[in-house]
Nucleic acid binder design. Structure first.
Lengths: 141, 141
DNA sequence: TCTCCAATGTCAGTTTCCTTACAAGCATCC
DNA sequence: GGATGCTTGTAAGGAAACTGACATTGGAGA
């Protein structure tokens, strides 16, 4: 009774690995990595978020996120005040150039996602999403 | 119409990230990483496989795989001949100690997978697997 | 009020993985 | 037979991530 469910974990890894690779290829013309895109995307959903919170949403450490933010700041895609008005968190936001870059990136990424889901019906896609949510909830403790 | 399907990619990443973290925690007592486990697991499925092929199955480069194999060889969990009988590929196999370590690891990993799928019915789990297979096929070009 | 605690930003060091590159072996095609 | 191409193994260098540690800041509780 060794081979039971371990396939789902492997499938998860396989799908995620391929998705990441395809996104990386798609974003290459924009000089953006998948991590960069995730960062920009999240900054539009939650403008003014702290780097630490942004790191949690993107599944990296705050150290890695700060290094990545520094790159994006150098490229004028993201802005962050030098000092906080209150507390220690520095609210981070997209610059106009960052919004434009994100818009361009989003088109490419949605193309990849659409391709990934092209073999599934609307109902099956919804079922896949629900299944993944259930996995996340169960593992999130 | 910006927010459409990008959630599935994010969910995929979220689930995979949590699964990886939980597996890492579970395997820590055995002094094994998830990469180590994937390697051992695959070696039991395909004994005598080459390091390059093993790398492809595990979604890393062959350089990374060779580095990891060296660790496992040093710990006597894996064995590989110094020279190939034919061709250049060196057939890699599990040692008895490697099989025992894999057996112990498998119990822990299956516990994590079971937990991940605990909120889903048998039918829903099968549907999730089918959905992931469709994603892999569509992205595999 | 004072103390403790959690969260944030940051620095330093290490690990892991990838990219680039090259040599070796086998198969295929001319 | 000889050239070409594909796969494999290996080495060197760099990029990106993590872990551990510390100071700062605001809030919670005694």
């Amino acid at each position: 009774m060794v081979d039971d469910s371990p396939q789902v974990g492997y499938l998860l890894k396989h799908a995620q690995s391929l998705l990441h690779a395809r996104m990386e290829e798609a974003l290459k013309p924009l000089q953006l990595t998948v991590s960069h895109y995730s960062c920009l995307y999240r900054l539009r959903v939650e403008p003014g978020i702290s780097a630490s919170a942004l790191a949690r949403r993107t599944f990296v450490t705050r150290q890695s996120m700060n290094a990545m933010l520094q790159q994006l700041i150098d490229r004028d895609l993201v802005a962050r005040p030098a000092r906080a008005d209150s507390g220690r968190a520095l609210p981070t936001v997209l610059t106009p150039a960052g919004m434009r870059a994100l818009d361009a990136a989003q088109v490419l990424v949605e193309g990849v996602e659409h391709r990934m889901l092209s073999g599934l019906t609307i109902a099956e896609t919804a079922g896949l999403a629900r299944g993944l949510v259930a996995c996340v909830s169960a593992l999130d403790e």
